[in-house]
Amino acid sequence: MAPPDASPPPQKSRRFSRRRLLALLASVPVIGGAGGAVAFNRQAYYSGPVSDHFDGTRFFDPHGVPPKPFTDLLRWQFGNDEKARWPETWPLAAKDKPPARVEGDAIRLSYVGHASFLLQTRGLNILLDPVWSERMSPVSFAGPKRANPPGIAFEDLPKIDLVLVSHGHYDHLDAATLSRLQAVHQPRVITPLGQDAIMKSHDAAIRAEAHDWGDRVEIGNGMAVHLAPMRHWTARGLFDRNKALWAAFVLEAPGGLVYHIGDTGYGDGHHFREAKRRFGGFRLAILPIGAYEPRWFMRDQHMNPAEAVQVMIDCGARRALAHHWGTVQLTNEAIEAPREALAAALAERGIAPELFRAIRPGDVLELSAAEA
């Protein structure tokens, strides 16, 4: 049984301090607002031809909008928007110990926390945006900190074959975790253009390969991965905003398609309707539901639970699974608010709650081959 929400009512806390400013700067490349961090990255991560989403220096989304300016970040942090206080810890009910493999068209998804999952199907073990670090930050002493440990102990991972990393924000691309995975499992790592350079600058041994929107990559056992647009952005430092690409992933398997979005705003819904047009619908969509308040600041880059339900409908997913909630506080909403808002949005649209679940870290979603 999940522990009760121990968080007190929302309260204002806007006192300026050096410690708070440092924590804010360490959080910037995670929260999806203004570009920047305490690091001063200037290098180019990718060089290639101009395209409909690359101007020769930076990537862009033709159907998106750029992140908010730094002045809006300060307005949010030191203005009048109320911020719920999360509990220091939100213990797991249980940790998962996954099997060595899942064969056939059954799917087993274990929620590690935030945007991290272990997906097992057709004999492959695939990690999505794996983060085992305590802080999701460019530094170890400040920035967003986990409220709970990973839902799978690192030592309990089965042999990892493949890692998918959606973009370079520190709550999705955790170089320390990728280096640990390389040392123990030597997995193949698939990521959007330019993110491979970030990984290899940390550890040259990481087996990273970069691909563009629209690419299809064979991964074995009758499966492939497609890279698809999502409405977001990326950065690791003050001067490298959008010098690498971001992407959603579509896992193609005989049992059906799985659509994984690491981070996205909703916008006008173009990307999700286009995904349905291109792929014909999905067996499962794995969608973010958290880090959405205040809406005036976050709406262009992070969708809320009601918008996530609309994405499920737009993309033609038969089922959905939520992430990006309950692990680390990035924005103003309370720890359980995304799950509560998801339940309300499903009820309003007349969708059965079991068709779009928000499980806790350490919990598992299993789909049988008969549900393909």
Rank of each mutant, 00 (worst) to 15 (best):
P9C: 00
R15N: 09
F16L: 15
R18D: 06
R20S: 12
R20Q: 07
L21M: 14
L21C: 03
L21D: 01
L22K: 13
L22C: 06
L24K: 03
V28Y: 00
I31Y: 08
G32L: 05
G33L: 13
A39G: 02
A44L: 15
Y46H: 12
Y46K: 03
P49C: 04
V50Q: 09
D52V: 00
H53A: 07
F54N: 00
R58V: 01
F59Q: 00
P62Q: 02
G64Y: 08
P69H: 11
L73K: 04
L74G: 07
L74T: 12
W76M: 12
A84P: 06
P87Q: 11
L92D: 11
K95M: 12
D96F: 09
G104E: 11
D105K: 03
L109W: 14
H114G: 01
A115R: 10
R122P: 05
G123L: 00
L127W: 06
P130N: 09
R135P: 05
R135C: 05
P138A: 10
V139C: 07
V139Y: 05
G143H: 07
P150D: 10
A153T: 12
F154K: 09
L157P: 05
K159T: 15
D161Y: 03
L162S: 06
V163G: 05
V163N: 02
L164C: 10
Y170Q: 01
Y170N: 03
D171Q: 06
D171R: 04
A175E: 13
A175R: 14
T177D: 02
L181E: 06
V184A: 13
L193E: 11
A197T: 15
I198T: 03
D203F: 05
A204R: 15
A205T: 15
R207N: 14
R207M: 12
R207L: 14
E209W: 08
I219Y: 05
I219S: 03
N221R: 13
A224E: 01
V225Y: 06
A228E: 12
R236G: 09
R241H: 14
R241G: 08
A244W: 01
A244Q: 12
L245W: 08
E252V: 14
G256T: 08
V258C: 01
G262F: 04
D263K: 10
G267Q: 06
G267A: 11
D268E: 10
F272H: 15
E274Q: 13
R277G: 10
R278S: 07
R278M: 04
G280A: 02
G280V: 00
G281M: 08
F282M: 06
L284S: 03
A285N: 05
I286A: 01
P288G: 10
M298L: 12
Q301N: 10
H302P: 00
N304F: 04
A306V: 02
A306T: 07
E307W: 00
I313H: 07
I313Q: 14
I313M: 08
R319W: 11
R319K: 11
H324A: 14
L330M: 08
A334Q: 03
E336V: 08
A343E: 14
A344E: 09
G350Q: 08
G350A: 07
I351Y: 08
A352F: 08
P353V: 14
E354C: 02
L355A: 11
F356S: 00
F356K: 01
R357L: 13
R357K: 13
A358L: 11
I359Q: 09
V364F: 08
S368C: 02
